[in-house]
Nucleic acid binder design. Structure first.
Length: 228
DNA sequence: CCAGACGTTGTT
DNA sequence: GTCTGG
DNA sequence: CCAGACGTTGTT
DNA sequence: GTCTGG
């Protein structure tokens, strides 16, 4: 799955990679957790790519209780087409979440004790960026409060991630960004081929300190390789 | 038909 | 144990 | 994902 | 809003 990630690339790099119209000024983040505001790339009505912020945790339009958002942080690519909670967003409101890397926890049973060892998974190529496939939805509370929300699609783990965890985020090929964001594509089955696990050669993984467990710890040292 | 859920992950 | 918040 | 709270009443 | 279960 994808329940924690990082985005520390300079705004200039993010802009280049995602071909954004506007300047970006972002603080680097090493520990992005659900429930917080995250950067999303969308296509506006003029076909231009725009960056925005959404709360991570999708709240469907029809929800009366926004706390459902804390459960809808991921959508399974294999079943997303059929799920009422994601159906509308998949048709009309796809987005991409820029990332410098993501965390997965490996369950390690050692002398009878169960430990969860966090790993950081990043592009194998230095300075590269990930674009996670995402869905967005705008929720309006009964009092009229507007909340932009999003979630991240997940898929089966590829060969590199599998020893750590059996799920991983959908990492789009840059050549697929346009198609994924195109609001004209309303036939969800046409999007299927984009949602495969990315090639393992594009990734590298290494263990990091359990300091990352604490969602409020956002220090750059979280990226430091740790021994297991 | 209406009522009630609508999700993923991991663990048992 | 289970839900909420970050 | 993990961490941390999880409740009501009455009083300040 | 839309699907599932009764």
């Amino acid at each position: 799955m994808c329940g924690r990630y990082a985005l520390y690339a300079p705004g200039r790099r993010i802009r280049e990679h995602f071909r954004l119209e506007d300047e970006l000024d972002l603080e680097p983040r090493y520990n992005i957790a659900p429930g917080t505001h995250v950067l999303v790339v969308r296509e506006d009505s003029d076909g231009r790519r725009r960056a925005g912020l959404c709360r991570w945790g999708l709240i469907p339009r029809w929800a009366k209780d926004p706390s459902i958002g804390s459960k809808l942080i991921n959508a399974r690519a294999e079943t997303v087409v059929a799920k009422p909670a994601f159906r509308a967003a998949l048709r009309r409101s796809r987005c991409i979440l820029p990332a410098s890397g993501f965390y997965e926890w490996k369950i390690v049973v050692e002398s009878g004790r169960t430990l969860k060892q966090p790993f950081f998974i990043r592009p194998h190529k230095d300075d590269e960026l990930f674009g996670f496939a995402g869905l967005a939805e705008c929720w309006v509370s009964p009092e009229g409060e507007i909340i932009d929300t999003c979630c991240i699609l997940t898929t089966e783990a590829n060969a590199l991630v599998k020893p750590i965890h059996d799920r991983m985020p959908v990492i789009l090929a840059p050549g697929d960004y346009d198609f994924w964001l195109d609001p004209g594509i309303q036939e969800p089955e046409a999007l299927r081929p984009l949602l495969a696990p990315c090639p393992p050669e594009q990734l590298e993984a290494y263990p990091v300190s359990p300091k990352v467990n604490s969602p409020r710890n956002d220090a750059p040292e979280l990226l430091a390789p740790a021994s297991m």
